[in-house]
Amino acid sequence: MNFTILIFGILSLIAVVSSVLMITRKNAVISALFLIINFFALAGLYLLLNAQFIAVAQVIVYAGAIMVLFLFVIMLLKTENEPLIFSQNKLLKNFAILIGILIFVQFAYLIFYAKPSNSLIQNEVQSVKIGTIQTIGRELYTNYFIPFEIAGFLLLAATIGAIILAKKKFE
């Protein structure tokens, strides 16, 4: 058996099991921790696809930053009231199920029926290289140099804005 397929099997098993565990836990914090495991497994899957950059971003941004955000929200909200939301409003639950089914159908269609457009097929060999950090780095500092700099200014403005609104001392 191929080594890559073995790793793929293990990682996808972890991803599926952790996501099932995540949605069945009663305690929101434990759910969040299972979500982290899920993110790590997904990052491994991205690595198998040669998408190093997305793998790293997945770990840093999702498993790192966004998870902290989730935990803060869980901490600040009263999660004990959560079952009440569904018991008080039956419609909400049905709506959630409907959305879930819709997304499932969408993915099923994507995987089994949809064909990639012609322009994507042409670059199949090239597209494998695109995910590497070298390629992304080179693109960022050549073709996308100006947007890269502007993104820096954007983050600077956002940081300054947040500090002014939250921390500025008023007389």
């Binding site: 502007i150 200014f153 954007l154 956002a158 804005g161 609104l165």
Partner: peptide
């Protein structure tokens, strides 16, 4: 985004 974020603040 640069413009809007500055305006929000």
């Amino acid at each position: 985004e640069l413009m809007s974020i500055s305006f929000y603040v």
